[in-house]
Structure formats: C-alpha cells, structure tokens
C-alpha cells in the first residue's frame, strides 16, 4: 500500500470535513448546531494530523490529536455553559438575537419571510380530569408511613 496515496486520501477526507464544518458555521443560526460544526472542523484537522503522523512515522500527529481532544472537551464544557446562560436570558438558541453586539454603523439583520412550519406542530389528545378527587390525609402528606 502506497503511503503517499494513503496520506492524500486522508487529507482529502479531512479537508472535506473541515469544509462542511465551515459551511455549517456560516449558514446555520442555531447556537448548538454552530458549536457542532466547530467540533466537526476539529475532527477534520484531527484526521489530517493522524495521517501526517503516520506518513512521517512519528507520534507527533497523534499526540497533537490527544491534546486537541482535551482542549475540545474544555471548550465544549465552557461553551455549553455560556450557551445555557444566553438561552436562559432570551429563551432562544438563535444567534441573530445577539446582533446588538454588532459594530456601529452595521445595518441590523431582519428576517424576511419566515417559513411556516409544515406539519411540525402535532396536537396531542388530552383527557379532561374526571371523578372525585380523594381527600388527602394529613398524615400521608407529612409522614412516609411505609419506610
């Protein structure tokens, strides 16, 4: 098996993963999906690292990937904590909500023609409560009798 061809194959696949990640980061507006796209770019780079390490016959590439995994785990922890905080303030995962942080003089981004949701909203059947609600005994509420 030709090592050079193997290196090229892996580099192409890694570049494709990186390209898809860039594409998703630019296009998507959901914070979580953007984060996933960043992780995907990291995966593309990891593939290239391992391929170069094998081609050169040393451990450097794999070492770098190990530390990349560690740093990516840190990044995911902090990033998701920040995302949760942002979502608690606005109730939305949309990045466009935070466009007030843009530079002075930039025009605001306004959504035009939101697609109506098609078949997404399903209404679940619900039962009206019936019968007589039993009186709760005060003992049962305050004590757990069978423990």
């Amino acid at each position: 098996m030709s090592e050079w061809a193997l290196l090229q194959n892996y580099l192409i696949v890694g570049a494709a993963l990186f390209g898809i990640g860039v594409f998703g980061l630019l296009v998507r507006r959901n914070l979580i999906v953007m984060f996933l796209c960043v992780e995907m770019m990291l995966q593309g780079v990891s593939l290239s690292m391992v391929a170069w390490g094998r081609y050169h016959g040393d451990w450097g590439g794999q070492m770098l990937v190990v530390f990349m995994i560690a740093v990516a785990a840190c990044e995911a922890a902090i990033g998701l904590a920040l995302i949760l905080m942002l979502v608690k303030q606005t109730g939305k995962l949309d990045v466009a909500v935070w466009q007030e942080l843009r530079e002075d003089g930039q025009p605001p981004f306004v959504d035009r023609g939101l697609p109506e949701s098609k078949g997404g909203e399903t209404s679940w059947p619900s039962l009206t409560p019936a019968g007589i609600e039993p009186d709760a005994e005060q003992d049962e509420l305050t004590h757990r009798s069978h423990v």
Partner: peptide, 23 residues
C-alpha cells in the same frame, strides 16, 4: 452533553431559525 443542552434549551422539534439562514 450536547444532547442534554438541547433538551434543556429547546425541547420542541425545530424552531423557525433552524429552517432559514441569514437571508
């Protein structure tokens, strides 16, 4: 971890900003 955050932050399927990009 991502799935947990998705569950906490967006329990329902897809929001409107998931189906549209920046213009």
């Amino acid at each position: 971890m991502f799935l947990f955050v998705v569950m906490l932050a967006q329990p329902e399927g897809s929001a409107s900003y998931d189906r549209i990009s920046w213009g």
